[in-house]
Design a protein around this nucleic acid. Structure first.
Lengths: 388, 388
DNA sequence: GTTGTTTGTTCACTTCCCGGATGAATCGGC
DNA sequence: GCCGATTCATCCGGGAAGTGAACAAACAAC
C-alpha cells in the first residue's frame, strides 16, 4: 500500500475510534457508532466494511431492538471479532482464598470464597485457587480461552524484579513467586500486588475513594499497610515497595517488633495485637467480628482499645499527611469499618498534623469490606490488559 | 465555515504541528517543516499560506542559509508572529533577592543577586524585585513586551486558593500575596511556589535529580521543607501544601516549636538552631558559610552537630521512604552540601527505614547550590507558559 | 556562463469524509 | 392486511485534504 501519510493515519485513527468504542461499550449498531464517534453514518459504514474485510469486527447474528423499543428498522449490530473476554481476581488472605471473575468493564460475573489454612503449603493453595478460577469461569459462562489475565492479591511485599515473596506471610510461601505459579496453572498473564495497593485500587475505582486524586488507603487487619494514591494513580515507588507504614515508630518504647525496632505501628495496631490485649477481659473467645460487634454495641473497653489503635495509626498518618497533603484517608481491612478506629485516627491527625493539612483531609471507612482486595485484583488485571 | 468534521480537525492538527515545531525550534524554512512534520512540502506550503493569512505566522525578512552552507536556493524562513519571548525567575530568600531572566528553553540570559533586609517591608522588596527583573531584561537584550511569565520563589507555604502567605517568613510579608503584587508591577502572569518545591523542580530539570522519577528533595536552611517528586512530577497535594516536613516530631522531648508541638524537626536541624548550638564553643561569629568551612576542614564539633542534624532529618525521611520508596534523596539549601549532614541522613535512613527501602535510595547533595530556587522559578514559569 | 542544488509553488490525482437521496425493515394504527 | 412513521444502512455526487511530479526561482561552485 502506498503510504498516503496523513490521510492514511486519519483513517487509521477513525478505525481505532470504532474498535475502541466497541471495546468500551460492547456490540452496537453502525448508527450508534456514528453518534458515538461524531463521524457521519456514511463514513462509519465505509470504515466498518473495511474492518469486516480485515476480520477485526463481525456482524452479529441477532439484531438489536430499534432504538429503545420505538419503531424503525432494527439495526445490524457489529462487534469486535475477538471478544474482550474476562479477567479474574484472586485474593490470598491470611485465612481465606477469594476469587472473582469479571468482564472487562469490571462487572463481577462470579465470586467465591474459601478458607485457607495457615499451615497449607503455598503450592497447594495455588492449586486450589486455580481450580476456583476455572469453576468461576464455568459459573459465569465464560470460555476458558476468553480469560485474558488474572490479578492477584498477596498479603506481603513483593520484590518487583523477581516477583517473589520476600518475607512475612505464612511459612509455606517464602521465596515462592505466586504470580509465576498461578501463571503456570492457568496459562494467562498474572499480575500480583500486595493487599494494601489492591485495596486502594478497588476503593479508588469502585469505593470510597472514587474520583479523589490524592488518597491514603490504610489496611488495618492482620498486618498494616498503606496504598498511596497520588494524582489518581497508585504510587508503587522506585522498587515497588512503597506503602510500608507498618514499621513507622509510634510508641516511645513499645514492644519489640519482628523488624528489630521498638514501637512499630504494626505492634500497636494490628488485629492480632488488639485481640491479645482485649482477650483477658472477656470470657468468650474474641474474634475480629465479635470485637466489631462489641464496638458497635458500645462496649467501653473495646472502644478504648480501638480508638487507641486508631490514634497510633493516625499518628503515623499525620506525618504522611504533612508530607503529601492528601484529600482523604480511607480505612480498609477487617477493622477499617470500626467507628472507634476512625475516631482515633481523626483525633491523632488533628493533633499531630499541621492545622491546614488536617483540615484538608477527610477520614472515611472503606466501602468494599472484605471484597476490596479481590475487586482490586480485578481492577489491576483490567488495567494491565488495557495497557497492553 | 461549514464544519467538515474529521477533515477539518485533521487540518487543524497539522496546523498545530507546524506552530508547535516553530515554537520548539524557532524560525525555519518550509522545507524544514516538511522534514520535521513528515508532511509533504506541498501540504506545508498550503498550511503555511493559511497560517500567514490568519496572522499566526510571518515570513521573516532575512533568508536563511541553504541547508548548512551547501549550495541551493536559500529558503524563506517562517516564524511564529508572536515570538516565544522570555521568562524570569524571582527568588525571595530570608536574606537575599535573586533574579534570573531566561529564554523559553531554560537558558539563563541574565542573573543578579541582592541582599534583603529582614526588616524590609514586603512591598518595598517586591518593588526592588520588579526593578531587578526589568534590569535583567535590559541586560539580556529582551524587550519588555517579550516577557511571558515570572516564576517566583517564596520561603513560606502559600495558600493555593488565595495565593497569600499564611505564616512564617518575615513580619512585613504576612497576608501579602506576592504573586499578585509582582503581577501588578510587571503586568505578566506570576506563578509562585515555595522554596522546597522550586528547588526540587530545579534539581529535577537541571541538577542532581535529572531523569529520576521518585525523589525527595529536602531543603535544609533557615527552615526545613521538602519538595516531593513522584513519577517525574512535583507533588503538591490536595490544597498545595504538601512537603511540610518541618514539623514531624523527631526528638522525644525536644524544644517547644512555634507550632506548639515539641521536638519538631525544624527545631532540631534548621540553620539558626545549629548556629546557636555551635556558637558558644567558638570565638568568632559563626555563619553558615564558616560552619561549612569548618566541616570541610574536619572540625570535630561541627561534624558532630551537622551529623546529628542529618540524623534528625534522616529519621523523618526514613518514615517517608518507607511510605514512598523513592530512588533518591537530594539535599539542598545552604547546608545541603555538607558531607557530614549527608552522612547523618544516610545513617538514619539505614537505621530506621526498611532494609529494602534503604537499599533502594541514594543520598546525594544538590548540584545547584544557592541558584536552585531561582532556576526552579524559571522552570516553573516555562512549564506554566507551555501549558497555557 | 553553465551546472548543480535546494526551495517553494502549481497541477493533476488519490484518499477520505460528508450531506442528501434511496432502499430496507419493522412498529403502530386503521 | 395495508399504510404511514421511523430508524437503519447504503449509494452517489461533491468538497476538502494530502501527495508526487514537474517547474520556476535563487544562489554557490566551477
Amino acid at each position: 500500500m502506498v503510504t498516503t501519510g496523513a490521510l492514511e493515519r486519519l483513517r487509521e485513527t477513525n478505525r481505532r475510534a470504532i474498535t475502541g468504542l466497541l471495546a468500551g461499550e460492547g456490540p452496537m449498531s453502525r448508527a450508534d457508532l456514528a453518534r458515538g464517534t461524531g463521524l457521519s453514518r456514511t463514513t462509519i459504514s465505509s470504515l466498518v466494511t473495511d474492518l469486516i474485510g480485515t476480520g477485526d469486527v463481525v456482524e452479529t447474528a441477532d439484531r438489536g431492538r430499534p432504538h429503545k423499543g420505538g419503531s424503525g428498522r432494527p439495526p445490524h449490530l457489529v462487534a469486535l471479532s475477538t471478544p474482550l473476554g474476562a479477567v479474574a481476581g484472586v485474593d490470598i488472605g491470611h485465612g481465606h482464598l477469594r476469587v472473582a471473575v469479571a468482564d472487562r468493564s469490571g462487572r463481577v460475573l462470579a465470586e467465591d470464597t474459601d478458607s485457607l489454612d495457615v499451615d497449607e503449603h503455598g503450592v497447594d493453595a495455588l492449586d486450589r485457587a486455580a481450580r476456583m478460577v476455572r469453576a468461576g469461569l464455568a459459573a459465569a459462562g465464560v470460555e476458558r480461552a476468553d480469560l485474558r489475565a488474572v490479578g492477584m492479591c498477596v498479603p506481603a511485599p513483593l520484590d518487583r524484579r523477581s516477583a517473589r515473596i520476600r518475607t512475612g506471610i505464612m511459612p509455606g510461601w517464602r521465596h515462592l513467586s505466586p504470580g509465576d505459579e498461578l501463571h503456570r496453572r492457568l496459562d494467562v498473564p498474572v499480575f500480583a500486588d500486595n493487599d494494601a495497593n489492591l485495596g486502594a485500587l478497588a476503593e479508588l475505582s469502585h469505593g470510597a475513594a472514587r474520583g479523589i486524586a490524592d488518597v491514603l488507603y490504610v489496611k488495618v487487619a492482620s498486618g498494616l499497610g498503606a496504598g498511596i494514591v497520588l494524582g489518581g494513580r497508585l504510587h508503587r515507588g522506585a522498587t515497588g515497595i512503597a506503602g510500608e507504614i507498618g514499621h513507622v515508630q509510634v510508641g516511645e518504647d513499645g514492644q519489640v517488633c519482628r523488624c528489630g525496632n521498638r514501637g512499630c505501628l504494626e505492634t500497636e495496631a494490628s488485629a492480632p495485637r488488639l485481640l491479645a490485649v482485649l482477650q483477658p477481659a472477656y470470657d468468650e473467645q474474641l474474634s475480629v467480628r465479635s470485637v466489631l460487634a462489641l464496638d458497635a454495641a458500645g462496649d467501653a473497653g473495646v472502644r478504648r482499645v480501638l480508638s487507641d489503635a486508631g490514634r497510633s495509626v493516625g499518628r503515623a498518618l499525620a506525618d504522611l499527611c504533612n508530607s503529601l497533603n492528601p484529600e482523604a484517608i480511607v480505612l480498609g481491612g477487617s477493622l477499617g469499618t470500626s467507628p472507634s478506629l476512625a475516631t482515633g485516627v481523626r483525633a491523632a491527625v488533628d493533633r499531630y498534623a499541621q492545622p491546614d493539612t488536617a483540615a484538608a483531609v477527610r477520614v472515611v471507612a472503606g466501602e468494599l469490606g472484605a471484597r476490596a482486595e479481590v475487586l482490586g485484583a480485578v481492577s489491576l488485571a483490567i488495567a494491565r490488559v488495557a495497557a497492553s
